[in-house]
Design a protein around this nucleic acid. Structure first.
Lengths: 182, 182
DNA sequence: TATGACATGTAATCTGTTACATGATTAG
DNA sequence: CTAATCATGTAACAGATTACATGTCATA
């Protein structure tokens, strides 16, 4: 059982919301704010094939009724289970260092794929990881700020501010979910 | 003339500040806040060889005097020119979408590699790109906010807040450089 | 009937990951 | 002497990018 790539999970999440063809996915990736993910056929079609080989999705060819031939992909039960597993796995400091892109993707799909209770758990896990990471960042900053040039110091500050902003958003999101659940 | 990868530019920037061996670079990548970049030998040594083949760096073997054999790499004039070209190229909206990691790397090296005037120009270019990107993001948000589930809406908000936070930092950094230049 | 959008793919190439391999030197 | 650390690499593989290739259908 191989690891699934970020693009793979993005595809799983989108298919969970709506069955789609490779072309549909390309349009989503190129036209919406998911431009971070590749919209090139050389990335998407091989990714779809890998997911199908792993048994996470299944494609059915749509034919007849004056339509062009196109293959619609849907999640299998195994695919939904894998999507949920990925979404619910705890947020690590590593996830934060790698850029947070993947966490946000997990969050974006969490509600429709696993429900609001899971979404809240994911947010709490993120809050936890941030609470561990921020003090370490600040300590490292204190250690280098006398030695580094101004630009290095400011770049570091940018990273810290980004984490702080993410923390504030996390609290905002938690509050939103707690309000809607009662 | 091939494109240089992000890791390649990270290496160029570090070598510009201090000549170093592959092992030194690995230690920097694994021990500091540059953990986003690979510290694996399978990434660094091939990257060093590519940079040397392109004539951007030159390695000299240090021997004798009871030291272990190690190869110290330094920037060539061509390497410094390429680093400056990369740092001074204008910031595009594409750069913002791709995650901003590369912009920050350019900024971090800009002062020592090209001087504070160049750093200021880079910051103004970043401010410009953000001023173009933020309204577009807000428009897209207005378009989807009625249709998307709560989690999708919040994820989008996270992206907007991140950009706003980056904008505030940019102004802070510009003010810092303007203060120090007078 | 010809043009362009729809829809799907392949091939070459590059970069990075993981895991393994090798030898030198120093500390205990 | 031997274990750990320093220092450098290689090999197999996965995933993405770019560019190209192919065929279908609607419409002008």
């Amino acid at each position: 059982m191989k690891e699934t790539s970020r693009l793979g999970y993005a595809i799983l999440g989108l298919l969970q919301m709506n069955p789609a063809s490779g072309y549909d996915l390309r349009k989503i990736f190129s036209s919406t704010s998911m431009k971070t993910y590749s919209d090139s056929p050389g990335a998407i079609y091989p990714a779809l094939r890998r997911l199908e080989e792993e048994g996470l999705i299944r494609g059915t060819v749509e034919e007849g009724s004056g339509m062009r031939r196109r293959q619609i992909f849907r999640l299998t039960p195994k695919g939904l289970a894998e999507l949920k597993r990925w979404i619910t796995s705890p947020v690590t400091v590593e996830d934060l260092i790698r850029g947070g892109q993947e966490i946000l993707l997990r969050f974006a799909f969490s509600e429709t794929a696993a429900g609001p209770a899971t979404t809240l758990r994911l947010l709490r896990s993120l809050e936890n990881a941030l609470q561990a990471h921020l003090p370490a960042l600040r300590r490292e900053f204190d250690a280098i700020k006398t030695k580094a040039p101004t630009s290095g110091r400011l770049a570091f500050e940018c990273g810290i501010r980004g984490c702080e902003s993410l923390m504030k958003w996390t609290h905002h999101a938690i509050a939103t979910y707690e309000r809607s659940s009662k």
